[in-house]
């Protein structure tokens, strides 16, 4: 149907602890098509950020990829030399991080921070790069863009800083923009501005976007497809409408039921999921969600479920659950 841009296969990440390596990400399979927006949803510690950081080898100390491949435009990102990797970082893949307050260098003017990747990746002259930087700031909707090039980060508001971060991420016209909770630190009216901006830019520039978030409501209006992560595995992967209309994994159902709605009836109680996610190194033997799952069977406690198409081979809706069919019947 459409062309694969990124295909991650069987990716595992482990952390070194005193008791030896502990798995944080356990055999993740996911892909991004050209021009597609993929939402990666999960709670803190589920490995959603680490998965994306591992692609460009930006993992923190003591954390390393232990297995897997990540084909990006035909090449395995995990096998690149450091020189090839630098071309990819910021060049082919742009990053926007969560905290716009700390992700910008406070002692550099934002113009310089924008120009830097252009000089490096595009080998532009300084004057060209500066002109392009001005265009980029206009593109992300910063008023008085040319004058703003000489501002320092602290002179901008949080929303404006996040726009600058996006401009830096877009500077080299990447094929893939990875946004890691870019609106979590922002107010809701500013969040709406940023979401609209990214939607608009995607349409205009035709790039693919991976948007990492914990907020299902936010991603509903933004993504084409959603991967739900739990304890370092993909538990469900489906086109956005299908995921919300017909969630097949008990965890996805639990998440959807636990968010209060703006429209629905006044429910007396929220359906919360009991318990807490497993810590790395204390993963249960079978399905990682089994200890919290209301529908868990014997097989769930012993055998790890595979990520499989929901009904037959043709649907793009995949779920990793032994009892998925029963979950759908119960709905």
């Amino acid at each position: 149907m459409s062309e694969r841009l990124l295909e991650v296969k069987d990716l595992s990440i482990e952390i070194a602890t005193r008791r030896g390596p502990a798995t944080i990400v356990d055999g993740i399979d996911l892909h991004v098509d050209k021009g597609e927006t993929l939402g990666i949803v999960g709670e803190s510690g589920c490995g959603k950020s680490l998965t994306m950081l591992s692609l460009v080898r930006l993992l923190p100390n003591k954390i390393r990829v232990s297995n897997g491949t990540a084909a990006f435009a035909g090449r395995d990102l995990l096998q690149l030399s450091s020189r090839e990797l630098r071309e990819v970082r910021g060049g082919k893949i742009g990053f926007v991080f969560q905290d716009p307050m700390t992700s910008l260098n406070p002692v550099m003017k934002i113009g310089e921070q924008l120009i830097e990747p252009l000089l490096y990746h595009r080998e532009m002259s300084k004057a060209e790069a500066r002109k392009r930087a001005g265009e980029l700031l206009r593109l992300v909707g910063i008023p008085g863009a040319e004058q703003r090039l000489d501002s320092y980060p602290h002179e901008l508001s949080g929303g404006m800083r996040q726009r600058v971060m996006i401009a830096i991420g877009l500077a080299c016209e990447p094929e893939l923009l990875i946004a890691d909770e870019p609106t979590t630190a922002l107010d809701v009216t500013i969040q709406a501005q940023i979401v609209d901006l990214v939607k608009d830019l995607r349409k205009r520039l035709g790039m693919s976007v991976v948007w990492i978030t914990h907020d299902l409501a936010l991603i509903a209006g933004l993504a084409d497809r959603i991967c739900v992560l739990y304890a370092g595995t993909v538990v469900e992967d489906a086109p956005v409408e299908q995921l919300f209309a017909e969630p097949a994994h008990p965890y996805t159902r639990g998440l959807l039921a636990s968010i209060p709605r703006m429209d629905g009836e006044d429910a007396e109680r929220l359906n919360s999921i009991g318990g807490t996610p497993p810590e790395p190194g204390r993963r249960p033997a079978g399905c990682p969600f089994a200890p919290r799952c209301p529908m868990a069977q014997e097989i769930c406690r012993t055998t790890v479920p595979e990520l499989q198409p929901l009904r037959g081979e043709t649907t793009p809706h995949r779920v990793a659950c032994h009892v998925a069919n029963r979950v759908l019947e119960a709905a």
Binding site: Q191, A192, D215, A220, G221, E241, R261, M262, D263
Partner: peptide, 10 residues
Amino acid sequence: AVPEADPVAE
């Protein structure tokens, strides 16, 4: 500005 957990409505 509040997003809705409903892709069709959104």
